[in-house]
Design a protein around this nucleic acid. Structure first.
Lengths: 130, 130
DNA sequence: AATTTAAACGCAACAATGTTGCAATTGATA
DNA sequence: TATCAATTGCAACATTGTTGCGTTTAAATT
C-alpha cells in the first residue's frame, strides 16, 4: 500500500483551506501560496486531498471548478450530498451543509452521487443592496 | 434590435440536437458536423441558441460542459430547474424533466437558478450488468 | 434582380485550465 | 545515517474557450 507524506506544500495548502470559509479555485490557492510551489504540484496535492477525503471538488454552473474542506461526518462511506451556493455577485461558493434536497427518481436509474448547486445572491451581497 | 439569421451552420447544429436524445458537448457536435464549419463558429452558434432559449447549458460533475435542447414550456420566464442525469459508464447526460427537487433554504439567500445533477448508472447501462 | 448592411463566418492568435513524463529532491522508516 | 518510494519542478503538451479582424452572406429594401 502507498503511504502519504506531509510536505511543506501540502501543509500550506491545508492552511489555506483552514483559513477560508468558502470554496477555492486552483488559481485562488496558487495566489495565496505566493509561488511557494509549482502550479502542477498544487493540482497533485488537490488530487491527493480528494482521495484522502479531506476536501471535495465542486463544479460550478458556469463551468468553473472549486474545492472545499470536508466537514468530517464520521461515516464509513463519505458522500457529499449537501448543497452548494454560488453567489452571482461576489462569486463566492459556500457549502450549505444543512440543505439536502428531496426528490423522486424514475425507475431503472441507480444514483451514486448528487450535485445540488444553487446560485443567486448570498446574504452579504443581498444586504449590500446590489 | 439585433436580428438573428438562419445560416447553414446553425441549421446543421439544430439538426444534430434534434437527432440526439442526450446532451452534447461542443466536441461531439463538431464531430457530427464533420468540419462543416469552424470550431469557433460552433461556439458562437451555441451562444446564440442559448440566448434564444432553444438550448441550455449543463455543467457536469467532472467539469465537462454539455448542451441540450429545451423542452418548450410556454412560460414567459424560462427557468431550467429540472434535473440532469450523468451516467458514470457511458457518460451520457439526459434531462430528467420530471424530477424537480424540493429543499429548504436558510434565510437571507436569494436563489435565482438551481442546478441539480445526479450521477450513477442509466437504465441502459444498469440492464447491461456493468 | 440588384443593392445594401449588419449578422455570421473563417482564420489566426491567445488565454485558461489541466495532464504527463522524467530527472531531482525529500519525508519517513529502518 | 542510509534507503527508497513519495513528492516535486520543469518542460512540454492537450483541451476548451475567447477575441480581433477582414471576408462572406442572409435577408430586407430598393
Amino acid at each position: 500500500m502507498k503511504t502519504t507524506r506531509n510536505t511543506a506544500a501540502k501543509t500550506a495548502v491545508l492552511e489555506v483551506f483552514e483559513k477560508s470559509k468558502t470554496a477555492l479555485s486552483h488559481t485562488e490557492i496558487q495566489k495565496q501560496l505566493n509561488d511557494l510551489c509549482d502550479r502542477v504540484t498544487i493540482y497533485r496535492i488537490l488530487d491527493r486531498l480528494i482521495n484522502e477525503d479531506v476536501i471535495h471538488k465542486i463544479s460550478n454552473l458556469d463551468g468553473t471548478v472549486k474545492y472545499a474542506k470536508c466537514n468530517h461526518s464520521h461515516q464509513r462511506v463519505h458522500i457529499h450530498n449537501h448543497a452548494h451556493f454560488s453567489c452571482e455577485n461576489c462569486h463566492e461558493i459556500t457549502c450549505l451543509e444543512t440543505v439536502k434536497p428531496s426528490y423522486i427518481m424514475p425507475h431503472n436509474y441507480k444514483v451514486n452521487e448528487i450535485n445540488f448547486t444553487l446560485s443567486g445572491l448570498c446574504p452579504n451581497c443581498l444586504n449590500s443592496n446590489i
